[in-house]
């Protein structure tokens, strides 16, 4: 910014509500039913140039769509848990599609090498695919059913490698 207007520091405002709802009580903490209809188009390539289309490749199976960025602190904490989740899931009914938001290949590679070396990520290089999904913030996770409908949403970063979460994913209907 060249004008006399700058960031007022970084006014990080964390807001935390403590209420609970009955509707989501059977779900793992932080996961909620989110029936938002058909998932937006998601067709991206990973760092090796391999393409993934949610609407084509994701058809017939659940897809764990996860938006992340290296500058996002909760993402750094959550990504190793996602890697362990993938290792611990016993069935193949959930496909994991990581989507990096608007970072370059070197940044993505360095980040994953450090925190989750067995994971690969799709690259939303200009951030426009993420914009289309309009997540509440980063990280953001959606569970898309085999028909391509968004069914669940995660609120922030979650410990996906823990038993409650693994059991939830394993029992998703075919």
């Amino acid at each position: 910014m060249t004008k006399a207007r700058v960031l007022l520091g970084y006014l990080m405002l964390l807001i935390y509500s403590h209420a609970s709802t009955a509707q989501d009580s059977a779900l793992p903490k932080g996961v909620r039913v989110y029936e938002a209809g058909a998932a937006p188009v998601l067709h991206l390539h990973d760092m090796d140039g391999v393409g993934f289309s949610l609407q084509d490749d994701g058809k017939g199976r659940w897809v764990f769509v996860h938006f992340w960025a290296s500058w996002c602190g909760p993402c750094r904490k959550e990504m190793p848990a996602i890697q362990r989740m993938v290792q611990r899931l016993e069935s193949d009914r959930v496909h994991v599609a990581l989507v990096n938001t608007a970072e370059d290949e070197d940044t993505i590679f360095s980040f994953l090498a450090a925190v989750a070396p067995e994971m690969s990520s799709l690259m939303d290089s200009d951030g426009q695919a993420t914009e289309a999904w309009q997540p509440r913030g980063l990280p953001a996770t959606y569970l898309v059913d085999p028909q391509g409908l968004i069914r669940y949403q995660a609120l922030g970063g979650l410990p996906w490698d823990q038993p409650d979460y693994l059991a939830f994913l394993e029992q998703l209907p075919r």
């Binding site: 960031l7 007022l8 970084y10 006014l11 990080m12 405002l13 964390l14 807001i15 935390y16 509500s17 403590h18 209420a19 609970s20 709802t21 989501d24 903490k29 932080g30 909620r32 960025a69 500058w71 996002c72 909760p74 938001t101 608007a102 970072e103 200009d126 951030g127 426009q128 993420t130 914009e131 509440r136 913030g137 980063l138 609120l155 922030g156």
Partner: peptide, 24 residues
Amino acid sequence: STFRWTLLPENLDFQPDEREGGSI
């Protein structure tokens, strides 16, 4: 895109246990 993600949302219905942050 990255800049927008650093901003606090204009409106958000915070759910139980949800945390979101951002700048103004």
